[in-house]
Nucleic acid binder design. Structure first.
Lengths: 225, 225
DNA sequence: GCCGCCCTGTAAGCCTCTTGTAAGCCAGGC
DNA sequence: GCCTGGCTTACAAGAGGCTTACAGGGCGGC
């Protein structure tokens, strides 16, 4: 679950993104509108949190620029200005929610989850593959109805594979989905992570497995089908 | 048990919320309609107490706005106006109870409990897990039929775990359920609280235990099952 | 009203689990 | 058979959680 967080106040950015990360999100943090548009176009985010008081580009123009390319990305706008007209403009421009500063981390989290839970959003679906099911809202995994214990990275990976069941994922794609660009891993971190997930899948007798395509990537294979 | 209390009179708000807290509720106190709608959408409250004489938005519109998103939240409306038509309008709009100012804290408490006891409400159920039972109305806990002695926080936590037996609760979820946003604890307050509850559970030989999922949260495990 | 107890949050130190890194091994392809 | 890419294992750092001690506050008893 990857977020773009656009906030020019360095300190606030640090704190907030830390608490978002603590809650299991991969967070890319940028400090100006230009970087924001650039990042939003380059990567697939599950949601974008946008501060309106940016130094370079007017925040709503950032929103419009991104929406023009990726119409479906949910936006949450933060601003110190609580004037009604701003709110209307924001919602008109396609923002999905609105947060008035100062806000606390719990509230932002709640809003992000709410936005992700909307139809078409990333949360609230239960993914199925073979005998395993993945509740994306609570992040609970069951194999043949029995709860399975997975660590956070394992959950992240499994979720990604299940969302793209059967489709091929390059290491690059995986890296982009699981790691923000502030925290780039070495190439084989992903190999190790898939190794660990594979082991767990075997341990819990899942009927799916992760197959390797040498030089290309991985895909989730439903062994029964 | 978390409440949202919407009241623009600062002083009254202070007093009343203090006495609600003294009775074991986590209370979020806001002073205008906008904040009220905002908070109600962001968090899950067990009940909302709404004053009608708000400075910005007409109280009944607050009620409607919230009900549109969270239809099941019980409302208790407070107002100085005791006119019949207001009462009818309030109940029509989906208010569950009605309180005419001035009221005293005991009466409000009684009404809250009454509303929570209704079918689908938070009180009046006896929760069961393993050999322990939790009477949500009287807040009494029994292990193998023998009464157990738990402090308020321990009761709060246990209730939360028993309501979501087997499901994973993040620290965040727990924090939101047990603490109002005026009283944010340090991160490890919850760790300490669960530690204490765990100890009691062992002492009283409960057949359930609280399991940790590192980096994710906790869940109540029925050891027998 | 004062004293003492209990409850609860804070803080600090320790311990455990997770996760990335690195190094060596294995397998497939040419 | 060699080379490349992936797998596996061991290791170390760090995060996260546990435990314990402590202090402030509230409540009841005297």
């Amino acid at each position: 679950m990857r977020l773009l967080y656009v906030e020019d106040n360095e300190r606030l950015a640090q704190n907030t993104s830390a608490s978002l990360r603590a809650n299991g999100f991969a967070v890319d943090c940028v400090h100006c509108g230009e970087d924001a548009v650039h990042s939003a176009k380059s990567f697939d985010y599950d949601a974008i949190i946008l501060d309106l008081g940016l130094p370079d580009i007017e925040g709503l123009n950032v929103l419009k620029a991104v929406k023009a390319v990726k119409a479906e990305v949910p936006f949450i706008i933060c601003t110190a200005r609580d004037a009604l007209e701003d709110r209307i403009k924001g919602l008109d421009a396609g923002s999905d929610d609105y947060l008035v500063k100062p806000f606390d981390a719990a509230e932002l989290l709640a809003r992000i989850r709410a936005v992700l839970r909307r139809p078409g959003g990333a949360l609230g679906v239960t993914l199925e593959a073979g005998n395993i099911s993945f509740d994306t809202a609570s992040r609970e995994v069951e194999v043949d109805g029995a709860p399975a214990r997975l660590s956070r990275r394992e959950l992240d990976l499994l979720e990604l594979f299940m969302r793209r069941k059967g489709r091929i994922l390059s290491k690059d794609t995986i890296e982009n989905a699981l790691y923000g660009f502030d925290e780039p891993p070495t190439p084989n971190a992903i190999e190790v992570a898939t190794h660990r997930l594979r082991k767990k899948l075997i341990d819990m007798q899942a009927s799916v497995s992760i197959q390797t395509l040498r030089g290309i990537g991985y895909f989730l294979d439903d062994d029964g089908a």
